[in-house]
């Protein structure tokens, strides 16, 4: 009983960044944060949507905090790519401060037997609550974090929608609200933000919808209240503030691919062998590590989740379909 066989998608300590490179967040603090979240829910009384606070999450032992050294909370919530709130990393934190992502209704649509418009808290209740998983996160800009997410496995939502056999892809769309999302008043990207997964990817056990970080409700700048997390893909696949899950027959056109098809593909799997046309993807900066000079580590195939997801792409030319 003392000898635990690690699940095959757990990363061995040897591939994890050395402890010294990280600002360590002791497990105790971690639990304390979670406690604060719960207390906040009890005191606040507002209907924090999809809030971790409202749905105390249990750490999924399969994706433990101890296996990876999480990035400090303040970096996770202040180094954001969320162009709806500005194109600089610091902007989303400030510009999304006043935004109220509530009430929030999610649409399950397209080729499904169970189309629905459902309030986000009801949705989470229906899916059986939330759990906690610690995932690596690798941005296409060659930096990485380790984030303790709260949320639910995407496959549960797929099962709830009950797609018809002709549904081959899942298209996810961010809220379109130029009045409250200042970035959408500029033409930096083609709004609203759209991302997609093949249905097999959506059903993979690693595909996750986040509702919280570090046991707290997911901050606006990180994509409140629902945000996709697919840790073996580049961060831009992680569409934020999702309002619509649509099951479709054709591969959806994802926003960054529309923007610059030579540089961003649909699959967007983390791959150290295939460079971005402007920079190398062979290694990555580790956010919040190493002091002023920082730290760098080698990028792993599928961001370290090769064993779990490689079977999805057997026979696929990953150089061509980057």
């Amino acid at each position: 009983m003392l000898i635990r066989t690690p699940k095959d998608w757990e990363l061995p300590e040897s591939v994890v960044t050395p402890e010294s490179a990280y600002e360590l967040r002791p497990r105790r603090d971690f639990i304390k944060t979670l406690g604060l979240g719960l207390a906040g829910a009890a005191l606040g009384g507002n209907n924090i949507l999809a809030a971790t606070a409202g749905f105390p999450s249990k750490e999924n032992p399969a994706y433990p905090a101890s296996a990876l050294k999480p990035t400090a909370y303040e970096h996770i919530i202040s180094y954001n790519n969320f162009y709806e709130f500005g194109t600089d990393k610091a902007e989303p934190k400030d510009q999304a401060k006043k935004w109220k992502p509530e009430p929030w209704t999610v649409e399950l649509a397209g080729l499904v037997r169970n189309p629905a418009k459902i309030e986000v808290n009801d949705l989470i209740n229906k899916l059986g609550g939330i759990e906690q998983r610690v995932y690596r996160m690798r941005c296409v800009e060659a930096w990485s974090m380790v984030i303790p997410w709260d949320g639910f496995q995407l496959s549960k939502l797929v099962a709830l929608a009950d797609p018809k056999p002709e549904a081959k892809f899942l298209k996810m769309t961010t809220l379109l609200d130029p009045k409250n999302m200042p970035g959408q008043r500029e033409r930096s990207l083609d709004w609203p933000y759209v991302e997609g997964l093949h249905i097999d990817e959506a059903n993979h056990e690693l595909a996750f919808i986040a509702t919280g970080i570090y046991g707290k409700p997911i901050p606006n700048q990180n994509g409140a209240p629902l945000r996709l997390v697919v840790p073996w893909k580049y961060g831009f696949k992680g569409v934020k503030s999702i309002v619509k899950f649509e099951f479709v027959a054709e591969q959806p056109l994802n926003t960054w691919h529309v923007m610059q098809s030579r540089e961003y593909g649909f699959l967007a799997n983390v791959n150290p062998m295939v460079d971005h046309p402007r920079w190398s993807q062979a290694s990555e900066r580790i956010i919040g590590a190493g002091g002023v000079l920082g730290a760098r580590q080698k990028t792993l195939m599928f961001n370290g989740y090769e064993k779990q997801v490689a079977p999805l792409y057997q026979g696929v030319d990953l150089r061509k379909y980057f």
Binding site: S78, Y79, W143, L293, G294
Partner: peptide, 11 residues
């Protein structure tokens, strides 16, 4: 001690 800048100061 800007936490955005400190995420990767050298960058």
């Amino acid at each position: 001690h800007d936490s955005t800048v400190l995420a990767d100061p050298l960058k």
